[in-house]
Design a protein around this nucleic acid. Structure first.
Length: 279
DNA sequence: CTTGCGACCTGTTGGC
DNA sequence: TGCCAACAGGTCGCAA
């Protein structure tokens, strides 16, 4: 489900709900979600309390006392919610639950069971989690620099959209924001990455920073099922320009938005505004 | 090193 | 109305 703005929205909401809560039990009905298995999770976590939550790209880093971190990736459908009463019946798609000393319970839901959690010593995330080891810069001006972005793009002759989805190039972009930022930048999603002009790279870079920041402000995008830790939908779906708009007029020029496949992912673009400059 | 594609899962949706 | 193939905010492993 979630791209960076949605994960950040989850982080902000969840933080308010679980900081200070002490784990007294861990359970699951789909052990694969927990790397290392249930017994390891119980042995490591019981007796420890949540102290804060950080985020890197689309990963949540749930911090506990004792220098423990649960690295959690929601993949397509993962969600968290706090149940005030642990005795509330197990819900549809509920696969992992952490019971707290005050009788409340943090529940993890995942209809497709793609999400994963891993316990690491705090500070060892980068050493132990493959996806974090080589992750690109956060899409903010202080981290994400045009020269590095250009160097990355020039290494690839595949479609620029596919490169944007590579978390090692820049962190946090997924299918929605790739389509949106390419539309904003008037770049065709299938243009070979290594053929972008300096001007195109600069515009794309700036739009990525702008778009993700705005999406966070609106608490993320709900297209299918995204909800934050309080069960609320996002607000940015009302701001989308091309994603999910096949056949509708381009907001800039009125041409019908087209939907194609790029490396297996549904891709929306305006055939008039977004013209390939590499063929 | 880069690239494309199947696998991982299950629920929902669009088209006939 | 009903069925079923296609599709879904993601990543990883593997072969070429």
């Amino acid at each position: 489900m979630p791209e960076l703005p949605e994960v950040e929205t989850v982080r902000r909401g969840l933080k308010q709900l679980i900081i200070g809560k002490k784990i007294v039990g861990v359970d699951t009905d789909w052990e694969k979600i927990m790397n290392g298995g249930l017994d390891l999770f119980r042995a490591q976590l019981i007796g420890h309390s949540f102290t804060s939550i950080d985020r890197r790209g689309k990963y949540l880093l749930l911090r506990l006392d004792g220098d423990l971190t649960i690295v959690s990736h929601l993949r397509m459908e993962g969600k968290y919610a706090l149940m005030t009463d642990k005795n509330e019946p197990k819900q549809r798609f509920q696969h992992v639950w952490f019971t707290f000393s005050d009788g409340s319970q943090l529940r993890y839901y995942d209809s497709r069971k793609f999400g994963r959690m891993t316990i690491v010593p705090t500070g060892q995330e980068y050493a132990e989690i493959n996806g974090l080891a080589k992750m690109g810069p956060e899409p903010v001006a202080s981290d994400f620099k045009v020269p590095d972005f250009k160097a990355r793009l020039m290494r690839h002759k595949k479609a620029v959209k596919t490169v944007l989805l590579d978390q090692n190039v820049v962190a946090g972009i997924g299918n929605i924001y790739a389509d949106e930022t390419l539309w904003m930048s008037k770049i065709h999603p299938e243009q070979a990455a290594n053929t972008l002009s300096d001007a195109q790279i600069q515009v794309l870079h700036d739009n990525i920073i702008k778009e993700l920041a705005t999406a966070i402000k609106f608490k993320g995008t709900t297209v299918h099922s995204f909800v934050d830790a309080n069960g609320a939908s996002g607000g940015f779906q009302n701001k989308l320009e091309v994603y999910g708009k096949k056949g509708e007029p381009c907001p800039r020029c009125g041409t019908a938005i087209e939907k194609i496949k790029v490396n297996g992912r549904g891709t929306h673009f305006c055939p008039h505004c977004q013209v390939r400059t590499d063929i």
